[in-house]
């Protein structure tokens, strides 16, 4: 067991917590769904996000034991559990992003550290630094085509794939958990920029924002 110090980043008690987009949604607005709405955006804030680094074999074993998910077998892979609540994504040959429902990450990190023991690894809680945006609807890929350099054609970007790429003038982790749904993991500091860019890009498709 490593002797790394861990602390729970979730405040106990009655401390108000704001999502990275709280201000943007007030300032830039959150358009309601219309008859012609072809794409819907929603934020999934406060998810637990852990960056796992280390050898694939030991991490895979520990992760199966603790979360019940195996690492994706190939580069650019994205693996989810049945409910789609927990996912693990390939970021780099020795790096993976684990996203779990908010509040679980502290316990998962502790149990992963126990399971990994003296193996060579690093786990960082990155939940406070990034947030997840979701695009859904028939025009979701059209909006993405206006925003990312990456080819999002279904033949090239199949379900269960995730890439880190350029989004407008920022970067984004783009994932496709299901046929109609796209997820964008964005940096907290770029959340407002990304949100406003998507509002603008989605205007022609009557983009709607669900809170």
């Amino acid at each position: 067991m490593s002797n790394a110090q861990q602390f729970d980043t979730r405040p106990q008690g009655e401390i108000p917590v704001e999502s990275p987009l709280a201000y943007s949604m007030q300032r830039s607005g959150a358009p309601k769904a219309k008859a012609g709405t072809k794409v819907t955006m929603r934020e999934r804030p406060f998810l637990g996000q852990l960056t796992l680094r280390g050898g694939a074999i030991v991490l895979d074993e520990a992760l199966r034991e603790v979360v019940g998910l195996g690492l994706p077998g190939e580069p650019l892979g994205l693996v989810q559990d049945q409910a789609g609540e927990r996912s693990i994504q390939w970021i780099s040959p020795d790096e993976w992003l684990l996203i779990v429902p908010g509040g679980e990450e502290f316990d998962i990190e502790r149990r992963l550290r126990e399971a990994l023991g003296d193996a060579h690894f690093a786990i960082s809680n990155v939940g406070g630094g990034q947030t997840v945006l979701e695009l859904e609807g028939e025009a979701a890929s059209e909006v993405l085509k206006k925003s990312v350099a990456y080819d999002v054609h279904p033949r090239h970007f199949s379900v269960g794939k995730g890439v880190t790429t350029v989004f407008a003038k920022a970067t984004v982790i783009l994932r496709r958990p299901s046929e109609e749904r796209w997820e964008l993991v964005v940096r907290r500091s770029f959340a407002d920029y990304t949100y406003r860019w998507l509002l603008d890009a989605g205007e022609e498709f009557d983009i709607a924002v669900e809170n």
């Binding site: 190939e74 580069p75 650019l76 350099a149 890439v163 790429t165 350029v166």
Partner: peptide, 11 residues
């Protein structure tokens, strides 16, 4: 060679 696919130069 690590991602195993072609990407734009700006990356």
């Amino acid at each position: 060679p690590y991602c195993g696919e072609h990407r734009e130069e700006e990356e």
